[in-house]
Write a protein that binds this DNA or RNA. Sequence first.
DNA 1: GCCGTCGATGAAAACCTTTTCTTCTGCTCG
DNA 2: CGAGCAGAAGAAAAGGTTTTCATCGACGGC
Lengths: 364, 364
Amino acid sequence: MAYTATGLENRSDMAANRRVTIRDVAERAGVSVATASRVLSGNYAVPQATRTRVLRAAQALDYVANAHARALVGGGRKMVAVLVRQVTSPFYAHVAEGVEAEAAAHGWLCLVGTTGGEPQRELEFVQLMREEGARLVILVGGVVEDDTYRGRVAQYAQALNASGARLVLCGRPAPGPDIPALVVEFDNEAGARAITGHLLSAGHRRIVFLGGLPGNTALDARVAGYRAALAEHRLPPEAAHVIDSGLGREGGERAMAELLKRRRDFTAVFAGDDMVAAGALRAIADAGLRVPDDISVVGYNDIPLAADFNPPLTTVRTPAEELGREAVRIALRTPQDSPSSRHVLGTHIVVRESVAAPPPERTP
Amino acid sequence: MAYTATGLENRSDMAANRRVTIRDVAERAGVSVATASRVLSGNYAVPQATRTRVLRAAQALDYVANAHARALVGGGRKMVAVLVRQVTSPFYAHVAEGVEAEAAAHGWLCLVGTTGGEPQRELEFVQLMREEGARLVILVGGVVEDDTYRGRVAQYAQALNASGARLVLCGRPAPGPDIPALVVEFDNEAGARAITGHLLSAGHRRIVFLGGLPGNTALDARVAGYRAALAEHRLPPEAAHVIDSGLGREGGERAMAELLKRRRDFTAVFAGDDMVAAGALRAIADAGLRVPDDISVVGYNDIPLAADFNPPLTTVRTPAEELGREAVRIALRTPQDSPSSRHVLGTHIVVRESVAAPPPERTP
DNA sequence: GCCGTCGATGAAAACCTTTTCTTCTGCTCG
DNA sequence: CGAGCAGAAGAAAAGGTTTTCATCGACGGC
């Protein structure tokens, strides 16, 4: 280990200044530790006189309670843990902020973890949170829903539940109706249907969906909404054209550039995510085409900077911070033994300038 | 309270829903708790035979170590806490991600907190981290450096140091040379000087600095660099025009709109932050002007989406994730009792399309 | 053949706080 | 005036783990 030599590794070596404990406070205040604890923990009514004496002693000694000792005897602690793919993704950052804010409002601690997209780290995180005694674990983000996933999450849920903690899934399904997990998510299908409808209303008939991630529940729902909208407008199923671009700006740019090289028989692009849309806009501009004159583009999520794209992006607003807040709110008010339940948050279209009527048919 | 393990009584299948402890594992494995601990903590070499016996027992019982008990006896824990203004700000998100990644690489836990800009919450956070036994606290972001600040941080630093923890300040100064704090920051002045020089080289002479926050150390350094560049080009001091826009996109938009209403005798804008630049771009577009033909704009920080602005923004890249990583790296390798030290990370210009030569002089 | 040593393991202390159980004091009501 | 009672505060147990100290057996060197 490269770091074993620093003073940070174990602080027990500095015997010089021992940590000041509640015993010291009690001694200085001339009371027993029990009384000091009663004052400091604030759980009992203690006569004003002794109360101030203890408080004064604590302040004089700069007493800091040991959260671990408290948690040890208290059997757990008020902590919520939220796991996202990456905090640098605007959508996830807002979810995390919502969780943090709501947790803080209730006096709970919030711990943020990231997976970087590796399912393995999700397992490690849950295990760690069990050790830490988190009472609420929130897993955010779509996922490919296969048997591995179902087994893994069922296991999480049961383990957490057994130790009195709660599991919340955001944007992904519970593995089964009898699995003790709460689900909070947006109605991705409705949102996608709405914005596809917006493109159809503008006159577009050949719309590409960019940004599928095969099997990913969140994206799949958007694809479903996209297909549903096409069907509603009596377009044949083969009108749907879904491209798996992968995640993020780079994925969108690469996929769009490649698509433009191959064919240009579409007039609009529905990016499954604003970051993908950003990449697509870049690729379209690099190909010498203009948005929305040549191609219309819409995104999903309405990240704050979507209004600053070129052109400002028409997209679907998914109130991410609200999702985070709602996740902890629901978890906090749902009794321990209630069955798994699902809560759906609404979305709505934000119209900006990236959509226009399709250009007149080019003569072949 | 809804959390008093209400539903656990009903579960008849688990007669004793008590948490499984190391004692249970030891019993099942037929060894003492001491031996079980030696295996489970991994701190001692234990013969293969007993080792596997204990491990098998732990697995069979789904044993989960109690992190609090461990921290209690171990005197702290491997946890780094990072405090930012908000995780939804791209720059801060990247710093947090860097901290998290580096912490995870060393097997440390990372706790992210936000202040929302209120100094009060900084104090609360540090206090909380002392209770939690964090061994490393990282405070990120510029700050107005007054006596209140100096006193507060000196107090944090000493308190943390006394309990064997370390304080790292990112983008803000240590309150004094004898204060036990590590400082890691970018050379804001050099970065600002460089990009102002870039505007000057393009021919601009009347450049507005947008986004000062009076007294804020990070912004002040950029203003200093801006002034220095003007001086290098032999422009008189009164050529400097600094506007306090406040933070974020809204601040930039409002300030820019107001400025454009008042006067238009400048040809370039140096926004102290990319988000401010985003707002400025919006305001300029709304005023019917074009970037860079009418006005050139540069930003600071190179957030990932700066390349997607309209037009793509020329800015200064400050590797935020690297800042976060470096903060924990430095803290981990600096011995406990070393004096306060300062580390500076370099920056560089990223040229895109938001700068052009100034338009020909308008006739008055 | 004995002593010193080493390796493996067990017993118990220590970490710090909360909370239950007791004790003690002073007071009120009968 | 005494019994009971309430209020205040102390003693001690509990919570789960690590680590020190102690024990015990075996083994090699003399």
